[in-house]
């Protein structure tokens, strides 16, 4: 790059910062210096053009109050009311529409070979407990969260202002408190299932085959968790962490953060929340009405062996070797 082309950038850079410096820290009035405080007074419009917000000194301890004007409030409002709103709305409505289409086209995914009548253990009691704790709190968090984002358009006109406030207030309490079991749940899920959720080559094949979801009778091999489930897992883990971090910031407003961080946290929380809700709707669909036999994995913990063979053939193999699959001989160690 030639010097000439660098120059305007640099000039702009120094120009801007120079002006900021000048505005923020006018030079010290040494005794020898002649100052006319009236002429040197700060100008609001100049300052606003230079700085993202106007801040000064205030005698009360609430340091937030020292920000005089934060035009960013208006930007945040745009973000919140448009970006967050539409990300959530499009993700959720999109997923719902997709599932509807999927259901209409594919219908319920049955166990192709029919139930075998024999079951094998997929999730132990502890795992199921974690799942349902996390799932249950997620659902409440999601509903109450979505209420905050969409309630005033959807619910408020239906039930009226007072009832809506009562509901929202309760929802807020629920959201605040259930956040904690949810976060614990996410941690335990991570510990319980991370080993089986590390992506590998099998997943590539699985994905290439579209998980067999779109073709009847196609069953790409999978270990305990197929790539789709891994995606769910990692969405929950990463999304959960994002929601937790941003959520905790929102829960303890301004403890360690300033306005900009609060606004950012809110936006992250809102967007991630909306997207995760959409993803989880798909998960719930598959885990319940979408697939025959799937629910049992989290219901009783025992899945039909045929179901397992179809969806997690490699896992069944592994389990069989450990002798945990009824009807399959335990692998005999080679001698």
């Amino acid at each position: 790059m030639k010097l000439v082309s660098l120059f305007p950038l640099r000039a702009a850079f120094f120009g801007l910062f120079g002006a900021i410096l000048l505005a923020v820290s006018a030079p010290a009035p040494a005794a020898a210096q002649i100052v006319n405080p009236t002429a040197q007074a700060v100008q609001e419009d100049k300052l606003l053009r230079q700085l993202h917000h106007l801040e000064g000194r205030i005698s009360i301890p609430d340091q937030k109050a020292s920000v005089l004007i934060q035009p960013a409030g208006r930007e945040w409002r745009e973000f919140h009311n448009t970006t967050v709103f539409w990300t959530g709305a499009i993700s959720i409505l999109g997923i719902l529409a997709a599932l509807l289409v999927f259901y209409a086209v594919r219908g319920r995914i049955a166990i192709d070979s029919g139930p075998s009548g024999k079951t094998m253990t997929r999730f132990n009691g502890f795992e199921r407990f974690i799942h349902w704790m996390t799932a249950g709190t997620f659902i409440v968090l999601g509903i109450t969260g979505l209420n905050v984002a969409f309630g005033k358009y959807l619910l408020l006109p239906l039930i009226g202002a007072e009832a809506f406030t009562t509901f929202s207030q309760l929802g807020k309490y629920a959201h605040n408190y259930l956040a904690f079991p949810f976060m614990i749940g996410v941690v335990f899920m991570f510990l319980a299932w991370v080993k089986e959720n590390i992506p590998n080559a099998v997943d590539v094949a699985w994905l290439k085959a579209g998980g067999g979801l779109f073709v009847k009778g196609a069953h790409p091999p999978a270990k305990k968790f197929n790539a789709g489930q891994k995606l769910i897992f990692w969405s929950v883990i990463l999304g959960g962490v994002a929601l937790s971090i941003s959520g905790v910031i929102l829960l303890f407003p301004f403890y360690a953060t300033g306005m900009a961080e609060m606004q950012l946290a809110q936006i992250v929380h809102g967007i991630v929340g909306g997207v995760i809700v959409a993803i989880m709707i798909a998960h719930i669909y598959i885990g319940s009405v979408g697939m025959e036999g799937a629910f049992d994995a989290m219901g009783s913990g025992e899945v039909d062996v045929n179901w397992a063979k179809e969806h997690h053939s490699l896992w069944v193999k592994e389990e069989a070797e450990k002798g945990k699959v009824p009807g399959a001989a335990a692998a005999v160690p080679a001698e």
């Binding site: 009035p29 405080p37 007074a41 700060v42 300052l47 000064g56 205030i58 920000v67 005089l68």
Partner: peptide
């Protein structure tokens, strides 16, 4: 609760203004 507050820009320097 501070419904109103006074913020001083450039506190202690020439050009100081309170709002």
């Amino acid at each position: 609760i501070n419904r109103r507050r006074v913020v001083t820009i450039n506190d202690g320097k020439p050009g100081e203004r309170s709002v």
